[in-house]
Amino acid sequence: MSEHIYERIKKDPRFSDLQKRRGRFALILSILVLTVYYGFIMVVAFAPEKLATPLAEGMTTSIGIPIGAAIIILAWLSTGIYVRRANSEFDSLNKQIVEDASK
């Protein structure tokens, strides 16, 4: 693409809106995952006995195992949510902006 098209894209108000929406969405998902992860680490550091509690009486598996697995699943899900929205809403808007700038 030429420099002229890049300038038209940068000046398009939809491009600015796209950048803000995409950045805000990524930030929200990142904060969610990091808060959960670091919360878990803080419990490991300062109250490990809470995570060492067995799932049921007589079991050796502690409550920390499914919580840790849930955190991993949360990270996968948040990635999937971002990819789904990026591939649908963000990509279609991006394609419109580029097509309009190329005319």
Results as ranks from 00 to 15, higher is better:
M1H: 14
M1E: 14
S2D: 15
S2N: 15
E3H: 15
E3M: 12
H4Q: 14
Y6I: 12
E7M: 13
E7D: 11
R8E: 12
R8D: 09
I9A: 07
I9V: 12
K10G: 07
K10L: 13
K11C: 08
D12S: 08
D12C: 08
P13A: 06
P13W: 03
F15C: 06
F15V: 05
F15P: 05
F15H: 09
D17L: 12
D17E: 11
L18Q: 04
L18G: 02
Q19K: 15
K20M: 09
K20F: 15
R21P: 05
R21C: 06
R22Q: 10
R24Q: 12
A26T: 08
A26E: 02
I28N: 07
L29I: 10
L29H: 04
I31T: 00
I31Q: 01
L32T: 00
L34E: 05
L34T: 06
L34M: 10
L34A: 09
T35E: 03
T35G: 10
V36H: 03
V36T: 07
V36S: 04
Y37I: 05
Y37V: 01
Y38S: 04
Y38R: 03
F40E: 00
I41D: 05
M42K: 09
M42V: 13
V44F: 06
V44D: 04
V44R: 13
A45T: 09
A45S: 08
A45P: 04
A45D: 07
A45I: 06
F46C: 04
F46N: 05
F46T: 09
A47P: 03
K50H: 10
T53K: 14
P54N: 11
P54T: 09
P54R: 09
P54L: 07
P54F: 09
E57Q: 15
G58N: 06
G58I: 15
T61Y: 09
S62D: 12
S62Y: 07
S62V: 11
I63K: 07
I63A: 10
I63V: 13
G64M: 04
I65A: 06
I65W: 07
P66E: 04
I67H: 04
G68P: 03
G68N: 02
G68R: 02
G68W: 02
A69C: 10
I71V: 05
I73K: 00
L74C: 00
A75K: 01
W76T: 05
S78W: 01
S78Y: 03
S78G: 01
T79Q: 07
T79H: 06
T79C: 09
G80E: 01
I81Q: 03
I81A: 01
Y82Q: 00
V83H: 00
V83E: 00
V83M: 04
R85Q: 01
A86P: 02
A86K: 00
N87E: 00
S88I: 04
E89R: 12
E89P: 05
F90T: 01
F90V: 00
F90L: 03
D91V: 07
D91K: 10
S92P: 03
S92G: 05
S92D: 15
L93E: 08
L93V: 13
N94W: 10
K95W: 07
K95Y: 08
K95G: 03
Q96T: 12
I97L: 07
I97C: 06
V98L: 08
V98T: 09
V98F: 05
E99N: 14
A101Q: 13
A101M: 10
S102K: 15
